Simulated assay, not measured.
Amino acid sequence: MQANAYLTFNGRCEAAFKFYEQHLGGKIVAMMNHEGLPPEDKAQLPPEMLNAILHARLDLGSTVIMGSDAFAGRYEKPQGFSVSLLVDTPEEAERVFGALSENGSVLMPIEETFWAIRFGMVTDQFGIPWMVNCEKSLG
């Protein structure tokens, strides 16, 4: 069994996934919009939804992040969770945190903590909350 994050966006899923692919080092393996639906399903959609992302998938190491644009008028701001990234080096933590902070909102600056060489919390420019963690040795 594997648990993965599924993120919902307010019309910016495509831009977010391209940003994540570039800055997190993943690979987009699926990105489809509503335009590709069968005609009978597409006919039921408001025209502004045709270019909205129906489903996206980013392979990120051994994990997956998936997402879509919310249906028109049904977007809700993400709350009550963060996507947690575990990175191997403090340099990688600084780089990733810096990228996610670009036009975002830093909740906790990246710094050393009692459990981590580097840890920080940020909400990115797409409204997604992240935690970047480079743990200290647990031994």
Rank of each mutant, 00 (worst) to 15 (best):
W130T: 04
V64E: 11
P90E: 04
R118W: 01
A3E: 09
A70R: 06
L138R: 13
L45K: 01
H34I: 05
P78D: 07
H34A: 11
N10V: 03
D88S: 10
M1H: 12
Y6F: 09
P109R: 03
T89D: 09
G67K: 00
A43R: 07
L50K: 14
A56S: 10
G127I: 00
N51R: 11
V122C: 04
T89G: 06
F119D: 02
K18Y: 13
W130C: 05
G67W: 00
A116H: 00
N10F: 06
E35M: 09
T123S: 14
P47S: 01
V106P: 04
G36L: 14
S105C: 14
N10T: 01
C134Q: 12
K77Y: 14
S84H: 15
E135V: 07
K42L: 10
P129N: 03
A72R: 13
C13G: 03
G26Y: 04
L45I: 01
A15E: 12
A99K: 09
V122H: 02
A52D: 14
E91R: 15
M31Q: 06
E92T: 11
T123K: 12
D124L: 02
Q2Y: 12
F71Y: 12
K77H: 14
E48H: 07
L107V: 15
D69F: 02
A72P: 15
K42W: 09
M49S: 01
V132I: 08
G61M: 07
Q2V: 11
F19L: 07
E111G: 09
F71S: 15
A93K: 04
W115L: 00
E102K: 15
A16L: 02
V122W: 05
Q79M: 15
L100W: 07
P90W: 02
A43C: 08
S137E: 11
F17W: 00
G98F: 10
G73P: 08
G26Q: 03
E112Y: 02
G73W: 09
E76K: 10
V83I: 10
F126G: 06
F81I: 08
F114H: 01
L100V: 04
G26K: 07
P39Q: 09
G139S: 13
L138S: 11
N51Q: 12
M49K: 01
S137T: 13
S84G: 13
N4G: 09
E94S: 10
A30T: 12
G80N: 06
A72W: 11
M32I: 14
F126A: 06
G98S: 11
M31R: 07
L138V: 14
E135R: 12
